[in-house]
């Protein structure tokens, strides 16, 4: 049968920063081909195809995005595979190889992580699941 693609609407203008991305204008409609957990979604828009940031897209059908998982305050253990330096106040700065707990996996690819007493947003793209159980 035909493949039904989900339609999303751009909520703001976005100018691409690399070759395989899509430029978006607020109000543009795109069909989603693939949703990557890292927050880049592969979309098609008329004759264009490319990656767009999920943060700039809202679903046409359900603006409340029921698919967004609930936070898990118990946390899931992940390891950072790349260092990231916070740009905004609510982000976390971490070195590569640090173990942290993921408490909320947001669709835009910026996950809420906890290390000790500190929490903040971190790019999911730089995280790898350890598969270990958290010590209680």
């Amino acid at each position: 049968g035909p493949i039904m693609l989900e339609s999303y609407r751009a909520i703001a203008d976005y100018t691409k920063s690399s070759k395989y991305e899509l430029n978006l204008k607020a109000g543009d409609l795109v069909d989603i081909v693939e949703k990557s957990q890292n927050g880049w979604w592969f979309c098609q828009c008329e004759n264009h195809r490319g990656w767009a940031p999920a943060a700039y897209l809202e679903p046409l059908d359900d603006p409340n995005e029921a698919e967004e998982p609930e936070p898990n305050y118990a946390g899931e253990l992940y390891k950072t595979i790349k260092a990231y330096t916070a740009v905004e106040k609510d982000e976390m700065t971490l070195e590569a190889g640090e173990t942290i707990e993921v408490i909320h996996k947001l669709l835009d690819g910026w996950w809420v992580v906890r290390k000790g007493e500190e929490t903040g947003y971190f790019p999911s793209m730089f995280l790898h699941k350890t598969g270990e159980k958290r010590e209680v």
């Binding site: 703001a12 890292n38 943060a55 609930e70 990231y84 947001l106 835009d108 910026w110 730089f126």
Partner: peptide, 22 residues
């Protein structure tokens, strides 16, 4: 390949457009 996703984290939305978060 065109299906290779960007290697940089996606941008965060402008603050006024951020989704409701718990």
């Amino acid at each position: 390949s065109i299906k290779q996703p960007p290697q940089n984290p996606p941008p965060r939305p402008p603050p006024e457009l951020r989704r409701k978060r718990a």
